[in-house]
Amino acid sequence: MTKQHQDKLMITGLAWFVAVVIFFPLFWMLLTGFKTETEAVTTPPSLFFAPTLENYEEVMRRADYFKFAWNSIFISGVATLVSLMLAVPAAYAMAFFPTKRTKSTLLWMLSTKMLPPVGVLMPIFLLFRDMGLQDTQIGLIIVYALMNLPIVVWMLYTFFKEVPREILEAGRMDGALPKDELYHLLVPLSLPGIASTALLSIILCWNEAFWSLFLTTSDATPLTAFIASFSSPQGLFWAKLSAASTMAIAPILVFGWMSQKQLVRGLTFGAVK
């Protein structure tokens, strides 16, 4: 076996190991959802058992899954669109027309992510109460769009920096205005980057569990609240919680699976020139 062959084998083995480590909790959750509550807590845990759908039946009986799922889809989708609409022009300006404060502005934007959300819970809660935004989809959309904005701007900024300025300059020579440059040259050229940014933003919105639990009650509750309702202080709940969690991650998992090509293209965008 040549050295090259050995290295390849080692890297493949390592990749498989990492993949299994990442996938195992998901696999276990999927499996536990089909066990009875007693089987779910038995030690040593059983890998082979008679699968049951009773947890899924119970979960469906106790909560309106589709209402939660629709809220998650709508809120994540619209919040991502809103943050992209704000971030694309911002990142364009920062990438192609930087001033001496651009770098520090970018850092300042990112620094807002360093504050724990609970630090601003009270002001935001009171604002929401006074503006009638509690338990509304629009309220969560605003919070999510603003919460993800720094990351979205940063990602787009790095993607836009990869686009050769000569292409934009050539467009400008042909009489394109900045908006034409943006919409007809830059956006199509960095579409994989924008797509992967959008995907990341959707995933972040989907998984967000602090604001969604505090700012919603029943009408605008997303799937995070759905999961939270299946944890019990007194009584066995792991099997039902696993079934509920599987149902909560299923849509985003399917979505991620379908768009993985875009995601990989986006993440490696500009890596090889």
Partner: peptide, 26 residues
């Protein structure tokens, strides 16, 4: 377009609905 999409999604309050906060105990 966005305003109408967002407004369409917001919920309307109902008069005699009581909201009960509880835990997931048997």
């Amino acid at each position: 377009a966005f305003a109408s999409a967002l407004l369409a999604g917001t919920a309307l309050a109902q008069a005699e609905t009581i909201t009960i906060a509880t835990v997931n105990n048997g």
